[in-house]
Simulated assay, not measured.
Amino acid sequence: MTHWEVHAVKYADRNARTRADSFLFDDNHDAPHAMDYYIWVLRRGPEVIVVDTGYDKAEATTRNRPIRMEPAEALAPFGIKPEDVTTVIVTHLHYDHAGGLHLFPNAKLHMQAAEMAYATGPCMCHDTLRMPFTSDHVCEAVKRLYSGQVVFHDGDAQVADGVTVHCIGGHSRGLQCVRVLTDAGWLVLASDAAHYYENFMAQKPFPIVVDLQNMLDGFATLKRLASSPELIVPGHDPLVRQLFPVGIAPHITRLDQGPMKEIPH
């Protein structure tokens, strides 16, 4: 089986954060703690799979969360036009992961059935649980469902040879990670099952959580799925760009050859 290239594409960052925004029960809660925002690209010959879509400048303005580049601009170095992408894996429907769904009009969306049920169900009556979602993004996913462009998964599933998804939940009810066969072994894109290395390495939960047990159990699932802990790639950690080599543009990081350095403990 030919292995996949995997690329992390940074499109935004947020530095005005503290450790209280990243970890429950952290003793050093007021220390600065930056966050990066990524889209991921899987390539194997002519095949392309995009994992998550980021969000656009309209959403950035609405939430006062500026982005450095639009998703289409971020993907341009690959020669990828969003309208040509036919497969998008949606790890979950939070605004920063599904805010660009409308930019990929011809893609089939692979998501967990539990995520659609969560984002359109009674849990959204609660302001706190609804906060990371944007109704237009959820409605876009529903429109795609009615046009036959959604593939639902229930737990573990294969999207392509060497690419599988695994429902973890915790941060969002139907959050899924993506497992990819690479030259370095089985690499796991944790997405928000682990925002940072410290989440899964030190068993420290992220504060936005719908099911704390699922989040904690998910840290063990990530370790089970990856060939080694070094091949678990957190969803928002700036350390990813320090540990893995620069890719084909300064905002792109190449993941499939493994990290250049050990993860700091």
Rank of each mutant, 00 (worst) to 15 (best):
W4H: 12
E5S: 05
V9P: 00
K10E: 03
D13H: 15
R19E: 03
A20W: 01
S22Q: 06
F23I: 03
F25N: 15
H29S: 15
A34K: 13
D36H: 14
I39L: 15
V41L: 12
R43M: 12
R43S: 12
E47C: 03
D52A: 03
G54S: 11
Y55E: 01
K57Y: 05
T62Y: 02
P66K: 09
P71A: 07
E73H: 14
A74N: 07
E83W: 06
E83L: 01
E83Q: 13
V85R: 00
Y95H: 14
D96I: 10
A98P: 05
A98H: 07
L109A: 08
M116C: 00
A119K: 00
G121D: 02
H126V: 14
T128I: 09
R130E: 04
M131W: 09
S147V: 07
Q149R: 15
D154T: 15
G155Q: 10
D156I: 11
T164M: 12
I168F: 12
G169A: 10
L175G: 08
L187E: 02
V188Q: 00
L189T: 03
H195Q: 00
N199S: 04
M201I: 09
P205F: 03
Q213L: 06
G218Y: 09
F219Y: 15
T221N: 11
S228R: 14
V233A: 08
Q242A: 12
Q242G: 07
T253S: 07
R254E: 10
L255R: 07
P259M: 12
H265L: 14
